[in-house]
């Protein structure tokens, strides 16, 4: 287990432990993710064909189309959304879906930022634990 310092951009309402889907590749949710089944559909992406549903999806930052917010909102509606998003930096394109879900729909999709160094320490980890307060998360190599 490692404990890493993080910034909770949107903190969960309660402690949660979820499976981790880790990637070194930035992603475009529009075109790159199938909202219907939560799978990565961009063949160039390291998580191609993997599902992010109910997992903490770690990607360094967002790229590509600004349709990401609408895709994430639709994933929330279809219950295919990730359980949390972990980035090195989160731009407004990625943050839009989680922020609007929080204010307009009372649904929470936690968003967490890590330093580049700590982000790379997530590689190979199986599960992570997120907390409603504080500035740490825990990563576990076993599921």
């Amino acid at each position: 287990m490692v404990e890493l310092t993080c910034k909770y951009v949107i903190a969960p309402w309660e402690t949660m432990r979820v499976e981790l889907l880790f990637s070194h590749d930035p992603i475009s949710f529009f075109g790159g993710v199938n909202a219907a089944d939560g799978r990565v559909q961009d063949y160039r992406h390291g998580n191609y064909q993997h599902s992010m549903t109910d997992k903490a999806f770690a990607f360094p930052f967002g790229k590509g189309s600004s349709g990401a917010g609408l895709v994430l909102m639709e994933m929330a509606r279809l219950k295919t959304a990730p359980a949390a998003i972990i980035n090195i930096r989160t731009d407004p394109v990625i943050l839009t879906g989680p922020l609007i879900s929080k204010h307009f729909h009372d649904q929470l999709l936690p968003v967490i930022n890590l330093s580049l160094e700590d982000y790379t320490r997530l590689e190979g980890m199986k599960t992570i634990e997120l907390f409603p307060i504080g500035n740490t998360l825990r990563a576990f190599s076993e599921s």
């Binding site: 600004s66 990401a68 917010g69 731009d91 407004p92 990625i94 839009t96």
Partner: peptide, 25 residues
């Protein structure tokens, strides 16, 4: 502006100022 090409064009070619705002922000 939202729409990735519009954002890049109005920032870079026009010199107006926008962040990458995603729909529906």
């Amino acid at each position: 502006c939202a729409e990735s090409n519009v954002i890049a064009f109005v920032n870079s070619i026009v010199g107006a100022r926008t962040n990458r705002y995603a729909g529906p922000l």
